[in-house]
């Protein structure tokens, strides 16, 4: 596995005028041969076995693994292994933290009084659940036929402001549409404080 594979294959596959279609790993998004450097090797291997068994055979056969190892000196191998283990642990930790954070992240729906009988509804915390605020703002605007925009908060974050008092409707819409947000995590608050001098 020294020179030949890399140099022979690349020009051979792609001499036609069409672009090559490269398979990317569904787990770590790298080309599968680079999965071993991604930190989620096990998951990547499972994924590849499921969706591209032929490629899996090629990449994860004993021969290929051995060839990979023999290219490095023992010392370098050890270091690489240690590094890989560290990376893997880090990836796992990150994932865990992410899911924990998601479970704890609250979505707040606030009704803010603007002008005696006029209200705006402020939805914050959606970005923690990996949603695109801009798109949701647009959808909310469409749904309630009101103005709806992404506004910056004083603390540096962003939130969605919908004109009109639609807090209950937003609550229903969110719980129905995004089922992966736990319902307990969505809170409705009424904010009595006047914003500015109307």
């Amino acid at each position: 596995m020294s020179g030949e594979t890399a140099t022979d294959n690349v020009p051979g596959v792609s001499s036609e005028s069409q672009a090559r279609n490269v398979i990317y790993c569904g787990v770590c998004t790298l080309p599968p041969e680079y999965c071993e450097f991604g930190g989620t090797v096990k998951k990547c291997e499972e994924w590849l076995e499921k969706y591209h068994p032929d490629m899996h055979e090629k990449l994860y056969s004993d021969d290929a693994l051995n060839a990979n190892l023999s290219a490095l000196s023992v010392d370098a191998q050890k270091r690489a292994q240690k590094d890989a283990a560290k990376k893997e642990a880090k990836a796992a930790l990150n994932e865990q933290r992410e899911s924990e954070r998601k479970a704890a992240a609250k979505v707040l729906i606030k009704r803010v009084e603007r002008n005696k009988r006029k209200y705006v509804t402020v939805v914050s915390g959606l970005e923690e659940h990996g949603l695109d605020l801009k798109k949701i703002a647009k959808e909310l605007g469409k749904k309630f036929a009101t103005g709806s925009s992404v506004t910056k908060t004083a603390s540096g974050g962003e939130e969605i402001t919908v004109q009109g008092d639609v807090s209950d409707d937003v609550y229903d819409w969110l719980t129905e549409r995004y089922e992966d947000i736990p319902e307990d995590n969505i809170d409705c608050i009424e904010d009595k404080k006047k914003k500015g001098a109307g």
Partner: peptide, 9 residues
């Protein structure tokens, strides 16, 4: 490209 790999890194 990388030794033993087909794709560009």
């Amino acid at each position: 490209e990388a030794e033993g790999k087909e794709e560009i890194c």
